[in-house]
Amino acid sequence: MLFGGVLALDDVELAVDAGQVTGLIGPNGAGKTTLFNVVCGLQPPTRGQVALDGDDITALRPFDRARRGVGRTFQRLEIFGSMTAYENVRLGAEIRQQWDRSWPDPDEKAAEVMARVGLWHVADERADALPTGHARLVELGRALAAGPRVLLLDEPSSGLSEDESDQLGLLLRDLAGDGLAILLVEHDVDLVMGVCDRIHVLDFGHILAVGTPGEVRRSEAVQQASLGTTAAV
């Protein structure tokens, strides 16, 4: 992946399994968001392949990938700012219903998701007036309302209180328990170590280490390259 003349990602290989939360950590500029963009199709890779269930989806446009089940949230918020939190989530379901007639009624789906994510108390707030933490949860709810099978979360806990962060962790485990494949980019080390089944450590476009939270924590390469040198991870 060539990005602005700098190699943002170089031969990164990473698998996300259903029913698991896979973590992706690394300092700022390591290429995490670029990787997300490549996976969901917003940015074409210079080479390489994105596969879902073994099917190559590299040539598909973003909305086709979404219809196959790739959902995501954004680190730089991409919220429907002129709508309420509820309308944001409802629209996720409505977009799904547009191409999938069998999808449940958007109001029903939105109510279910709002409760699950814990957003009812801000349901009628305009989304662009929400604090970032809640806006991120709205993005998560909106993605869930469209029923993804793979969910890419770009720093979902930034802006949340410690309590809310813990709740989010439980929700992510719960979602994985439902069979969702979750790829989590996160700066909150406790959250990542707490919820992930496997963690990939990315730095300067390379995967430095892969393993369970415990293995990653003990890995010397990671200690030196990222955990030791940046406060971020």
Partner: peptide
């Protein structure tokens, strides 16, 4: 409001 989000929602 958010063209990228629309695409990634399908």
């Amino acid at each position: 409001d958010a063209p990228n989000a629309c695409q990634t929602l399908g």
